[in-house]
């Protein structure tokens, strides 16, 4: 779990992608997600997957996505989907498409954490003039994903130390075994949220309607270039996927 959590921790690097304006990065990541959504043929899914991997390489985040624990989850999930689809529809092609799409969706969602920090997401949302509370709630939720995963790990350690065995017994027992993990997890999450809200209020959150920003986003020439390039590729892909 700890190793898995590492995939979702943003790390600043000097990659060409991370030098771009966060709005451009968000747009590229969104375009990839749309392409995964509309790809229905096997070659389309593979093309999108190649795009995701290319972005990961450009963002110097391939090693993080190749985290063995994350990969293990991907393989388990895609194998499950593959088997179910194959058993239900008896079609090898649709089973391959669905399981590959599952991988592409998860990878394109995970790449979001590799190329954008929660602070940058907050900046982008603010620049889009979204309501302040919504922006804060969204960025806080993103920021707390790895923290909550570590909480989950601690809870698991505490319950395993009291003799809880998650991987033993009948499926019904295994499901029941998750209750000792879920309850403390929900409680600690709620406590953490309420403490965060109090701490924010104690530091005058909400005291003024218009908060100023430490950094103001400005598009550079390289951002415009990247934007044009990504739009061109995205438009071509959409044309190819939907109309060819």
């Amino acid at each position: 779990m700890y190793r898995l959590a590492q995939t979702f921790v943003f790390r600043r690097n000097r990659s060409p992608i991370q030098r771009l304006d966060p709005r451009v990065r968000l747009l590229i990541s969104g375009q990839l997600l749309i392409l995964v959504g509309i790809s229905s043929q096997i070659h389309e899914v593979f093309l999108t997957l190649t795009g995701v991997l290319a972005l990961a390489i450009l963002a110097k985040g391939l090693r993080r996505l190749a985290n063995p624990f994350f990969m293990a989850w991907l393989i388990v999930g895609s194998t499950l989907i593959f088997s179910l689809q194959f058993l239900l529809n008896e079609s090898l092609v649709s089973a391959v498409i669905l399981s590959t799409r599952f991988i592409a969706i998860l990878l394109s969602l995970s790449i979001f954490y590799v190329i954008l920090s929660p602070d940058e997401v907050e900046q982008v949302m603010k620049s889009a003039r979204l309501p302040r509370d919504l922006v804060f709630a969204f960025s806080a939720a993103l920021r707390f994903v790895p923290v909550l995963m570590l909480d989950g790990l601690r809870i698991m350690d505490a319950q395993r130390s009291r003799g809880l065995e998650l991987d033993k017994g009948w499926p019904s027992t295994r499901i029941k075994n998750f209750i000792p993990l879920l309850v403390p997890f929900i409680v600690t999450t709620l406590v953490r949220s309420s403490e965060l809200a109090e701490a924010m209020e104690a530091r005058a959150y909400g005291a003024t309607p218009n908060r100023s920003s430490l950094e103001i986003l400005r598009l550079q020439r390289i951002d415009v270039l990247a934007l044009c390039l990504s739009f061109a590729i995205f438009s071509l892909a959409v044309e190819f996927f939907l109309f060819v």
Binding site: D151, R154, D157, A158, S161, R162, L181, V183, P184, V187
Partner: peptide, 15 residues
């Protein structure tokens, strides 16, 4: 069975 650990935060185990 032979080693009991009391962790720092009780919130991580009470359910």
């Amino acid at each position: 069975r032979r080693v009991g650990i009391v962790f720092q935060s009780p919130d991580h185990q009470l359910f």
